[in-house]
Design a protein around this nucleic acid. Sequence first.
DNA 1: ATGCATGAGCA
DNA 2: GCTCATGCATA
Length: 357
Amino acid sequence: MTMSMYSTTDKMKMSAPSCFPGRYSPSYRSSEQMRRCMPNPSGDIFAGINDGILSRAEALAAVDIQKHQAQHVHSQMPSQIKHDVMYHHHTMSGPPQRPLQMHHSMDQLDMLDPTGSMTTLAPISESPLTPTHQHLHGSYHSMNHMMSHHHPGTLSGHTAGHHGHSAVHHPVITAAVAAAGLHPDTDTDPRELEAFAERFKQRRIKLGVTQADVGKALANLKLPGVGALSQSTICRFESLTLSHNNMIALKPILQAWLEEAEAQAKNKRRDPDAPSVLPAGEKKRTSIAAPEKRSLEAYFAVQPRPSGEKIAAIAEKLDLKKNVVRVWFCNQRQKQKRIVSSVTPSMTGHGSAGFGY
DNA sequence: ATGCATGAGCA
DNA sequence: GCTCATGCATA
């Protein structure tokens, strides 16, 4: 039961133990984390820390949480998996820097209308979040919980959404899914999400793209209703520290990005109409090949501080940019300085900091 | 990576 | 007033 508790109050966000950070979804924590955070599976999460550790505020938060749990705990949530797949989707509106809001109602509508009438892309193709359908579901809230909590257990496999009511059916999501060629039933499986997040991170790193880069690049994907996201969000996605629904909503989008990014990375040239989903090579870190490096070291041994002209000459000889060579020498001197410092601590802090370049 | 804040939609 | 998705700022 304790596990099903996933939403938190503001109070909790501010004072609860780190194990229960804001809107985190405990469901996605590793079992180890779970154990650490919830020493007492019996349901009294705070059993182990109640004695004096909780500040007054924390105690209040705890009460709040327990209260909350009472409302949300469903008899069948034996596991840490929170399967209330119901709504949401995000909306990333235009300007990449503006907050993107998600509206939850539509998914719920979808749940009510398994026929998929809402799955058309039409409604969202133009406006990210057409408020049109919001507000119809209110009372289905609890229903969603019941319907979506089918899963037996933590480890049980299953495909959330096989009942035809998953968040994946949201128009925006559907669009993303279509764009990414994904299979909804597969996308909502917590284990699949976890696996994807891991894969995503590794492949992103391999591409040499930062979390922030991904966030910005999303806007170039031009997926309906999908704009940029922050580094925070990408980070949270990778670390599974988003709500279940949020994870499900973001997965197709990030998968679409990943596929496009890898495609672009592969074909030197991307399609004319493909807006570049990879960071403009400008940020790429220069890598000096071994042979050139050896030459530079040889020069350095003779003259650690070559003149601008000398640097230009070296650069031309090694077919490197002058700036690259200049920076290499700067870094080399700093490196040397570090080594010297470690050997001669007394040198540290001496006015040899400025090299005057 | 994450604490704290914001704002939307909802009840 | 609450939940939720998301971002800013900072550790």
